[in-house]
Write a protein that binds this DNA or RNA. Structure first.
Lengths: 246, 246
DNA sequence: TAGTGGTCTAGACCACCGT
DNA sequence: CGGTGGTCTAGACCACTAA
């Protein structure tokens, strides 16, 4: 009844125990060692097997429930969710996503300036009336294929963009290196027709459908650190996500 | 130092204590009683004030951290995230969303049949080779404006669609009433050109951009219960979501 | 009825932050 | 250094499910 997934714990590691368990359980699910519909658990026995308290074991399982890999049912147990898994989108940039997928993204910085933002941007970033922002416009490609046209606004006190080579690194990675800890992003995804100039840049015809995303990102102090509006070629990009009801 | 948000607990209520606290904290944030950037906490003191244990108080705060309303920073405290809040998308249908927004959606069922699914649908739903599914095609409008063209496939043993008036209720609501507990949804959002027939239905011109979503939903036993591909008029609809890094 | 997850308690030690 | 959140323990009682 116990498909022993053989979990190893290292109590001297700085990695939390619940996370060690979650990692190894996830691995077992992704490799198929734990198949769709299979039951793990119960929590009490698992905890005892591993020499953990039940709350710690529960926390480990909760991580995978939140990722949509496991479902819990009271009185029944915990089971592996069916279906192929795709990685959830987190607070990553397109650049990060492409790198992870083994692609070689290329970025051309079209514009980079310090400007006075318009009212909408100032409101999104909650800036004072006289505050200035970095204005950044980039075109991202994979190989010879244009993929996305990106516009971003950043408060000038968040990061000094002039000191960064944005052709060689993603914006989010640059922000992280500057010590910004991004915690929350609020985004809206829709679609629209490509305008003429934009269509030329993306190698599409005017009026072609574009996938659009606008996002405001907040750091670990709750401060808005970035606002951006992006346009993607829909035949080359899509947004995947997992929703979990608790 | 304590912006006393006056939280009331009812220990005789079946609503969990952590949830009662989370609800009232969220209310305080949404109404502005707790303003952007304001610190709540600390966990120990809050727990003591309310006569709760610290883990319970922590769980309450975690709910709002997961919703992107609060950010925690070790050594500092817990603060309210800046910016306007929009409700996250959960496992709801377009119908539910519209109803909540006070709209009056109208649904026309274009087709409803039991069919043998093609390979892709069979794979998404993890069905046996000889299994049949409900095939459902609907057009949803608000007022006189067409909004979305929706196609769904459901295993026949999940719910009997013939017994439901889908003009009067959303598909997800109908599934819930049939005892289906949906727990996980995996979706992909992109865009494409409207085809001729589709454009006519949606009141758009051929080639107009459409926002597309395909989603597979799983129940509390990890079983695929629904697969759908939808097309929305992008000037009338967009997907909003909140991402949280932990 | 037996077994499962859901909630809750009352502590403990640690890591990190700002002063 | 004091104060914060991050982790962990060892229990307890309850609600729900399935046999």
């Amino acid at each position: 009844m116990h498909p022993h997934t053989h979990i190893t714990l290292d109590r001297s590691s700085p990695v939390p125990l619940y996370f060690q368990v979650a990692e190894q359980l996830e691995e077992a699910i992704l490799t198929g060692t734990l198949g769709a519909g299979e039951r793990i658990g119960n929590e009490v026995a698992l905890a005892a097997d591993l020499g953990l308290s039940r709350p710690t074991m529960r926390q480990a399982i909760q991580v995978l429930v939140d990722k949509g890999l496991l479902v819990r049912k009271r009185g029944v147990g915990t089971q592996v969710v069916a279906g192929r898994v795709h990685r959830p989108l987190g607070l990553t940039s397109l650049y990060d996503d492409l790198m992870k997928a083994g692609q070689r993204p290329r970025t051309v910085v079209l514009k980079m300036d310090v400007v006075y933002p318009d009212d909408q941007v100032r409101a999104e970033l909650r800036l004072a009336d006289d505050a200035q922002v970095w204005y950044l416009e980039r075109l991202r490609s994979v190989g010879s294929d244009p993929l996305a046209h990106m516009t971003n606004y950043l408060p000038t006190d968040v990061v000094d963009l002039a000191a960064v080579d944005l052709g060689e690194t993603g914006l989010y990675e640059a922000m992280r290196r500057a010590g910004v800890v991004m915690r929350v992003g609020r985004q809206r995804i829709s679609a629209r027709r490509a305008e003429a100039a934009e269509a030329r840049m993306l190698g599409e015809s005017e009026g072609a459908p574009l996938l659009t995303m606008e996002r405001t990102t907040y750091d670990d102090a709750g401060r808005a650190v970035e606002y951006g509006t992006h346009a993607y070629r829909p035949d080359r990009y899509s947004f995947e996500s997992t929703l979990v009801d608790r």
